[in-house]
Amino acid sequence: MPVPDTRRETVLELRVNNHPGVMSHVVGLFARRRYNVEAILCLPVDDGAQSDIWLLVNESDRLSQIISQVEKLADVRTVVRHAEDSCLFAGLRQQMYGGGELKESA
């Protein structure tokens, strides 16, 4: 039985230049600085010239360091750190899986 994760979750909201390599720049940074990303959402904005990326991550004392590394990426315009998941990922989970359980596929 998995131990429930009691760590606080945080959502990072990134505005980035939209081009084919930008996701690997962002996600690769978290991977090589051994910081787990729990969930990702990415949508084009500004007629596709930019994208917004939302990352669901666990709080830790290394989060500030990761954020300052993300801010150094040339394609990242802004980083906003939200105190908690403002329904974004919880709502998505509800929408897709209903009540947190994976629906049986037909």
């Binding site: 084919p20 390599g21 090589r32 990426l73 040339a74």
Partner: peptide, 14 residues
């Protein structure tokens, strides 16, 4: 090489 050089460049372009 674009993908390979991401972790070791300040920035890269194709």
């Amino acid at each position: 090489i674009y993908g390979m050089s991401i972790p070791i460049t300040k920035h890269n372009f194709q």
